[in-house]
Design a protein around this nucleic acid. Structure first.
Lengths: 222, 222
DNA sequence: AATCTATTCAATGGATTCATTGATTAATTG
DNA sequence: CAATTAATCAATGAATCCATTGAATAGATT
């Protein structure tokens, strides 16, 4: 094989991979699948897409082996092919947060509006956990909590939080987490808790970040 | 700001970043700039592009802040904006090598043709270095060696190797490295050395990988 | 068998990306 | 100041990407 042909082939394949990532909806799909598997219908609903459109984007991701399908009944459950997919998504995210001023600005605007500017990092949370003076709150949907969560975390999906706020243990600081830095659940939860007089802050990252750092996690099988 | 608007903005920006990576030439440019800065002309020559085309691709990378320019005389020296750019490129590369069978096949085909199938990883090289029974050979162009290299490595650019082979220290195994897993210099060097009766193998990764693992390195200022 | 439902397929036009070409800019040299 | 050189700009058509639409498939239910 020719040297030139070799390079063209390898870099061409990798560019194809990058192309599969190069669409807002497909990045959102990856962000969702990093939590737990989902049907086409669920994805379409979450992202406000038509089924056909969601299906097409999933085909593209499948075409470069980033996701797999498991067919059950007449549902197609899509899931990420590999933890490395999350790794790429994370490093792209970090690069973006560092290099694109626009992202940081948008993030700050949104957070200040939700009154949850001060976020805690995973490292800071780990310290607090050692001292055992923190309540960890997972506000993602139950299915995602069951698929994996921070050990000891309480599961209260965001849409039940207002009703179940009384059940929270008192006297300890509350740290809320959700899907990741671009997920708004935690921000909404912090806003709600603070309005009710409960001191709270959000975790900067989300569960997939916890998991990919090889920290221990719990999962609840069906 | 609306929740939907927020997501659209953030994921849109990140998709734009991915789009900038989604072209074979632009990935090659990043791979090159990970070694050392370069002028437009040098990049165009390396990749066999017209100046105008090379310039356009660089504009795209500059547009999303992945590269910066330093103008000197009438040369424009382009360089990577940040070590995180290399990190994304590396994780994309790894994902590709794991998920795209086509890449692994191409790699194996090429290497077996060059008789350099057995490659050594950085971890393995570190072990050999501890035991001090290895000659490390950097076959990249001198400028890249000066910009940074593995401590103790010998610099013999690939096009001088045949003439200078006699000057190599005897009795120790030779490990050759170059720009990265998709760079062919090391393969060509191994083929050449083996043909001359010198036992040699290549380092799987390249210098940027060594550097981004926070291992110590030497640089020679101008 | 007929119906229903989740998903995929196929075709369509509008938008974007790409390489090429030739012109233009801006710094350096004669 | 004219000429040279590295780089960028602007315009062009070809190719590709994308969302929408309506039809097709295939598993489950009646």
């Amino acid at each position: 094989m020719e040297k030139k042909e070799f390079k063209a082939k390898v870099f061409g394949e990798l560019a194809g991979l990058a192309k599969a990532l190069a669409h807002p909806f497909r990045l959102q799909i990856i962000d969702l699948l990093a939590q737990s598997s989902r049907t086409v219908e669920e994805i379409a609903a979450q992202l406000n897409l038509s089924m056909a459109n969601a299906s097409q984007h999933l085909q593209i991701l499948k075409g470069v082996n980033l996701v797999h399908v498991r067919k059950e009944g007449h549902y197609a459950h899509y899931y990420l092919a590999d933890a490395k997919v999350v790794a790429v998504w994370q490093s792209l995210r970090e690069l973006g947060m560092e290099r694109l001023a626009e992202i940081e600005r948008t993030l700050n605007d949104f957070r200040s509006q939700k009154h949850s500017f001060q976020a805690v990092t995973i490292d800071e949370l780990l310290l607090k956990m050692e001292q055992d003076n923190v309540v960890i709150l997972d506000v993602r949907p139950e299915k995602e909590f069951r698929a994996g969560h921070i050990p000891g975390a309480l599961s209260i999906p965001i849409d039940q939080l207002l009703n179940r706020i009384a059940g929270l243990p008192l006297g300890r600081e509350v740290v809320v987490y959700c899907r990741g830095p671009f997920c708004v659940y935690a921000d909404e939860a912090v806003e709600l808790l603070q309005n009710q007089g409960v001191p709270a802050c959000r975790l900067e990252e989300g569960f997939p970040d916890w998991k990919s750092r090889q920290l221990p996690f719990h999962a609840i099988p069906d």
